[in-house]
């Protein structure tokens, strides 16, 4: 347990889960889209839906989509900031069932060339867990830099990726691949210690079977 987990985080109130965590979910979605955002639709589940209004949950999610950190004092003005940027954000309701974490949001983003959908929960104290990206299960917490790869499920894929990371002396903290069917689209999320050097991107661009990849930084406010 680190000192600034006890004294901190520095955040805009009122709730670490409904405000700070919500902001970080939006921030992660923007980073994973990894291109200019045009429209967003966000569905709220459970306690996010029931008590989100009083806790600024929508403003916090919007702030995150604009790239604001959880302690940015403009957080509560985020709807106006989004309008000024010409960004349309629509909110709706969803019931993800009793198994879903009470503070869950499902985010659909449309960028200039691609779309992204993400389901994530704010699990307490501002911590988050992204559970699904583009319909595939993941477990991304954003406490470490995370390399996210969209790729085809092919033999030897992970060996090639880990070889790239070995070349640049990067230690893997966790790795998870998921797919719907054998040989189809897959997502791999790799949490690493430290920060990936720039040459990794160049090497990954030459790796076959990768549709795209994103380096998700440590989420702000850690």
């Amino acid at each position: 347990m680190r000192i600034f987990e006890i004294i901190g985080p520095s955040m805009i109130g009122p709730s670490s889960s409904h405000t700070a965590g919500a902001c970080r979910l939006g921030w992660a979605a923007r980073a994973l889209l990894d291109e200019p955002l045009e429209t967003a639709r966000i569905e709220l589940h459970g306690s996010f839906l029931a008590t989100g209004d009083g806790h600024g949950t929508k403003e916090a999610l919007t702030a995150g989509l604009l790239g604001l950190a959880p302690d940015d004092e403009r957080l509560i003005q985020s709807p106006e900031l989004a309008r000024a940027e010409g960004l349309a954000i629509h909110f709706g309701e969803v019931d993800l069932g009793p198994q879903a974490h009470p503070n869950t949001a499902r985010i659909h983003l449309k960028g200039s060339s691609r779309q992204l959908s993400l389901t994530g929960a704010s699990v307490g104290g501002g911590s988050v867990c992204i559970q699904e990206v583009d319909g595939l299960p993941v477990e991304i917490r954003g406490t470490l830099e995370t390399l996210v790869l969209w790729h085809q499920d092919t033999p030897g894929f992970l060996a090639r990726i880990t070889a790239v990371l070995a070349c640049v002396q990067i230690n893997v903290a966790s790795i998870r691949t998921s797919r719907l069917e054998r040989g189809e689209n897959a997502i791999t999320a790799i949490e690493v210690d430290g920060s990936l050097p720039d040459e990794v991107s160049a090497l990954l661009r030459k790796t076959p079977a990768i549709a795209r990849f994103t380096r998700l930084p440590v989420l702000p406010g850690s």
């Binding site: 006890i6 004294i7 901190g8 985080p9 520095s10 955040m11 805009i12 109130g13 009122p14 709730s15 670490s16 405000t19 700070a20 600024g56 403003e59 302690d71 004092e73 957080l75 509560i76 104290g125 501002g126």
Partner: peptide, 21 residues
């Protein structure tokens, strides 16, 4: 009150107990 008004606080150790320290 700052917390309830969407102001910036340091959660110590949480937002709901941030006034005491």
């Amino acid at each position: 009150e700052t917390n309830a008004a969407f102001g910036r606080i340091i959660a110590t150790p949480t937002a709901g107990s941030a006034g005491i320290c």
